[in-house]
Structures are given as structure tokens and as C-alpha cells.
Amino acid sequence: MAADNRSEAAQGLSLISPPLLYSVLVLAAPLATILAYSFLKDGYLTVIREFTLENYLSVWSDPIFHKVMARSLVVAALVTLVTVALAFPVAYFLSFVVAPERKSLWLFLITIPFWTSYLIRVFLWKVILGYNGVINSGLKSLGIIEQPLTFILYNVNSMVITLAHAYAPFAILPIFIALEKIDRSFLEAGRDLGENRLMTFWRVTLPLAMPGVVAASLIVFIPTIGDYVTPALIGGGKIPMIANLIQAQMLDLDNRPLGSALAVSAMIIVAVVSVIFLFLNRRFLKVKQ
């Protein structure tokens, strides 16, 4: 029996070894390099290999870091809220309204944005929201406005719109999967007990779909907070986020230790926020039960 267990363990290890090695090479190694750089000193166009905590002291005492990090958290939270709020009705429609034989077609259509580069989609939104873009040109031709609208580009609003569109499929799919796993007999039982559709949704459907909502929220929130392209193009460089600050230190100022300390600090903050979000969600589910 013990030999069988060892053989099964060896087979399992052989199966996971290739992806594990790949993960170590492409993820763990770069993270370890950044972590190591964050404890080194910066010299002129070089890195002095001496241990120091000055980079972290500089980061955490810098009011610019506080402001940019707070802005990044707020923008990421807004994008997450808007994306999940728009994705949930779409996922609900796919799960409860669309005929089973047509769900695969709808899922195929949802994945179409993945066919184009993320950078191209950002540029398209810049064309749509620009001063002489589709929206302003259309409103001017209809005589609704005389001067181009200035509040739809190079601000937080345009960044939220662009990022919400970019990450919408990532939010729709996990919510759809969670809704598909719900036993429809639970909903029928709720209605048999006299609950209307709204209360059945609030007391049954939403709590059971929360794992998908949580997954969608984290999938959107974590990459959004580190987005570099959208703040640079749609924000016009006027609303930098933490990724832009890291890029400036790493490339423009060639201060890799300080840039690494910024990156590690941002990762720690995102991890803490994510854990708090998971904890609050667990408390919410306990209350609902």
C-alpha cells in the first residue's frame, strides 16, 4: 500500500514538474530578482551590491508614493465595481435566459475582444473619446454641442471606461461559471416558499454566486492597479498610477533599487487589500447564511 502511494506521488510529481518549473522560471525568478534589488544601493548607472533599507524608508516616507498609491487603489476599486456591476447581468442572462445550445456561441462572442491586442483596444478608446473623436464629432454633427467635451478624455472617467471594457470578459466568465453551478431547485424552493424573484435573487442566487463575484473582483482589481498603458495613453500622463511611478524610477531615472522597492511595496499593499476583501466577503456570506 505504501509503495502504491509512493508511485502515485511520483506520477503526480512528474505531471506537475513541467508547469512548476515554468512557473518558477517566469514568475518566481523575476520576483526574487526584484526583491533582491530592493535591498541594494543605487549608484550612477550601476547597482551597488550592499544591503540597505534606505529604499523602503524613502518609499514609505514619500508623500508622492502615498498619493499615487491611493489614487491607484481608488481607480482600481472603481474599475472593479463598474466591471463587476456590468458583467453580472450579462453572466446572469447567459446562465438563466440563453438556451443551453446557444451558450457556447455567446461565450465565443464574449471572447472576441481577446482577438485584438490590449494596446490596440486602448488606442481605439482614445479615438472614440478624443477631442475630435467619434463621440465629440457625432454630437457636434447633431448640433448638440458646439465645443468638444473635455471631461471624457485624459481623466479618471476615461480610464475607468477603458479599463472596464478591457477586463469585462475576465469578470463575465467566472461569474457565469458560478451561476451555472447553482442548483435550480433551490430557486424553485424559494419561490414555493412565497419569495418573489427579487428576494429569491438576493437570498439564494447572489450568495451562491459570490465565489464567482469574488474571483471576478480579484481578477479585475489586481491587474488594474498595475496597469501602465491606460494611464499613459488615456490619462495623458496627467494621472499617473503606481506602475507609471515604477517605470519612471526603473527606466527614466535608472534607479532600479528604488523602483524595485516601489514594486514590492505595491505588491504588499495589494496583497493586504485582497486578503481584507476576502475576509469581509467571508463575513458577508456567514451573515447571509
Score class of each variant (00 low, 15 high):
residue 3 A to M: 14
residue 7 S to D: 14
residue 8 E to G: 11
residue 11 Q to W: 14
residue 14 S to P: 03
residue 17 S to H: 08
residue 19 P to E: 05
residue 20 L to M: 15
residue 21 L to H: 11
residue 25 L to Y: 09
residue 27 L to K: 06
residue 30 P to L: 14
residue 30 P to R: 14
residue 32 A to M: 13
residue 32 A to V: 12
residue 33 T to P: 07
residue 34 I to L: 15
residue 42 D to H: 15
residue 48 I to H: 10
residue 52 T to R: 11
residue 54 E to N: 13
residue 56 Y to N: 08
residue 57 L to N: 09
residue 58 S to R: 14
residue 58 S to Y: 13
residue 59 V to E: 02
residue 60 W to G: 00
residue 61 S to L: 13
residue 63 P to C: 04
residue 64 I to K: 10
residue 70 A to R: 12
residue 72 S to L: 01
residue 72 S to Y: 02
residue 73 L to T: 00
residue 73 L to M: 05
residue 75 V to I: 15
residue 76 A to P: 04
residue 76 A to R: 02
residue 80 T to Q: 02
residue 81 L to C: 08
residue 82 V to W: 04
residue 82 V to L: 08
residue 83 T to H: 00
residue 90 V to S: 07
residue 92 Y to S: 08
residue 96 F to V: 07
residue 100 P to T: 00
residue 102 R to W: 15
residue 102 R to G: 11
residue 103 K to N: 06
residue 104 S to F: 12
residue 106 W to R: 06
residue 107 L to Q: 10
residue 107 L to D: 03
residue 109 L to R: 12
residue 111 T to W: 02
residue 111 T to D: 04
residue 119 L to A: 07
residue 121 R to V: 07
residue 122 V to D: 00
residue 123 F to D: 01
residue 124 L to G: 08
residue 125 W to S: 10
residue 127 V to P: 05
residue 130 G to I: 02
residue 133 G to C: 08
residue 137 S to T: 15
residue 137 S to H: 14
residue 141 S to T: 12
residue 149 L to P: 06
residue 150 T to Y: 06
residue 151 F to P: 03
residue 152 I to G: 08
residue 152 I to M: 08
residue 153 L to E: 10
residue 155 N to Q: 03
residue 156 V to R: 08
residue 157 N to G: 09
residue 160 V to W: 00
residue 161 I to W: 10
residue 161 I to S: 05
residue 161 I to D: 06
residue 169 P to G: 00
residue 169 P to T: 01
residue 177 I to N: 12
residue 178 A to P: 05
residue 178 A to L: 07
residue 179 L to Q: 06
residue 180 E to P: 09
residue 183 D to Y: 03
residue 187 L to N: 10
residue 188 E to V: 14
residue 190 G to K: 01
residue 190 G to R: 02
residue 191 R to W: 13
residue 192 D to E: 14
residue 193 L to I: 07
residue 193 L to T: 10
residue 197 R to K: 11
residue 202 W to Q: 13
residue 202 W to S: 13
residue 205 T to E: 09
residue 207 P to G: 09
residue 209 A to Q: 04
residue 211 P to Q: 01
residue 211 P to N: 01
residue 212 G to C: 04
residue 215 A to K: 10
residue 219 I to R: 13
residue 220 V to Q: 06
residue 223 P to Y: 03
residue 227 D to R: 02
residue 227 D to T: 01
residue 237 G to K: 04
residue 243 A to G: 03
residue 244 N to G: 01
residue 248 A to N: 13
residue 248 A to W: 09
residue 250 M to I: 07
residue 250 M to Y: 10
residue 252 D to S: 13
residue 259 G to W: 09
residue 260 S to W: 11
residue 261 A to H: 09
residue 262 L to P: 01
residue 266 A to M: 02
residue 267 M to W: 05
residue 268 I to Q: 02
residue 271 A to P: 03
residue 272 V to T: 07
residue 279 F to G: 13
residue 279 F to W: 15
residue 280 L to F: 15
residue 280 L to Q: 12
residue 282 R to A: 11
residue 283 R to C: 03
residue 283 R to H: 05
residue 284 F to H: 04
residue 287 V to G: 07
residue 289 Q to I: 06
